[in-house]
Structures are given as C-alpha cells and as structure tokens.
Amino acid sequence: MSPETTVTFHTPSTLDEAFALLKEHGDDARVIAGGTALVVMMKQSLVVVDHLVSLASIPGLVGIDVREGAVHIGALTRHRDVETSPIVREHLPFLSDVYGRVATVRIRNSATVGGGLAHADPSQDPPAALMVLDARVRLVSPRGEREVAVAEMFRDYYETVLRSDELIAEVIVPIPSATARTAYLKFLPRNEDDYATVAVAALAEVANGTVQKLRVTLIAAGPTPVRAEAVEAALEGQSPTAEAIRAAADLVADAVDPMDDFRGAPDYKRDMAVVFTRRALERVLLAQG
C-alpha cells in the first residue's frame, strides 16, 4: 500500500535546523528516526503529515559511551547496536539481553533507542529494563534541555511527557551495583516473534539476608509500562522468603490494567502478571539453586 505522495523528507544536519523545521510545520511534521513504527502508521493512514524530519544526518546522536558511572546511549543508536555493543555487554549485560528480545534482528537493525521510547508502545521491551535500571532520557529543545526518568516519561498509550518541540538526545543508564541481580521474563505463549502477553523486569540488591533495593516493572500490562511500587515496598527491608515473595507478587494484580487483545483477555493477563512477577522475584531474590 502506498501512502500520500506529497510528503517532503527533510534531512537537517543540525539540531537547530531540525527544531526550525518542526516549528515551521507544526502538526504537519513528524520526526522520523528508524521509521519501523512510523512508516507502518503512515502506510495505514494512522498518521498523516506532509513533512518528515529525519534525524539521521545530525551528528552526535548515535553512539554509546561510559561517563560518570552511567552508560550514555545516543537516541539514534539502533537496537541491534545496543544489543551487540561491547560497552553495554560489559557494564549492562541485562540491557543488551533485553534489547536483544525486541522483535527480530531485522527490526532491531532499523529501530532506534530514542524512536522506540518516543513511540511509547506499552508492549515494547526496553522500557521495562530501563526503568528498573533507573535510566533517564535527556531531552533537548530550542529552549534548552532537561532530564526525565524513563519511569516518568509515559502518559498513556503512545503518549509521552515530551513537549511538541522536544527531542530525545540520549538515554542515560546508571550502572547498577555489582551485586545487583536482574531478570527479564517475557511470556510468549503464542509465537516467538510476538509481542509479550505480559513481561516482567526485576532488579534486586540483597545484603545480609535483607532486600536493600528492589525494582519491578511490567510491560504489556496497561496503557504504559507499569512500575510495581507496591511489590517493591512489600519486600524492601524484608527477608525474601518464598512466602513473602508470593504475597508481594499477588499485589501486582492491582497495579496492572491489561487490555483485551489477541494475546489474552485482561483477567488472564492479570493472573499471568502475578505468576511472572513471582517468578522474576524468585530469580533475583532467592539463592540460585
């Protein structure tokens, strides 16, 4: 299916040029990064604009480096490059793995880190990992820049807190303590190349038999990625027994609000959220058998 033929494809070479184009065309322009989601939406006339502003020619938006205890990932970095980056593998192997769980190699070759976050599809894998890692995005606009926690950036289905003139410049991911344990459980009962029925990311630090820090995030469980704060609170400062974990996991049922789709009815997904939260907690909290 071919979409509109009158679209102008702009390739600004600086952020300022990009800002100017976006300002000039307003609602009639969209930013395009990898395009994996946007092109489909435009083909199906779900998005109709006359101007596309590509960020691909702007230097400085691609790349991965380590500074001040955090890994900085440029917004135009491809999923596949996060997955295979030696830097990410060394400092954030968990993040490599989760980026490696997105769709297929072919999609990961095109989809960008910033594009994925801005798209705000609640079924995408990376936000789950980024949220438990306390990652934040650096946003730039003609007015300056600001940082927002990934956990705070999603508002609703396909909606973020980004203002209309803001772009994601990079994602900043703090390197967790060496003792932190992580797990990502993606429930794919139908097909390996499917969106998750539900998925859970967890990160825990346990010292002296007590949970020092716990992060639990679910995707495909509501209009936005869900941070299960009640579960975290129930276990932080506690001794992580199997019973305590089970009781804490049950609390996730009230935190999620899954939608009815081909991957399951809401009540089934809610039950599965509990099961997979418990299993993720067991992975990060119980001694490995």
């Binding site: 139908r190 097909n191 390996e192 190349d193 499917d194 789709d261 081909f262």
Partner: peptide, 11 residues
Amino acid sequence: FGDYKIPSAGD
C-alpha cells in the same frame, strides 16, 4: 501478521 501469527523458524 503482527496479530495473526503463523509459526516462525523459532517455533
């Protein structure tokens, strides 16, 4: 094909 899933090489 995102919603109507058929078996892939992974299945």
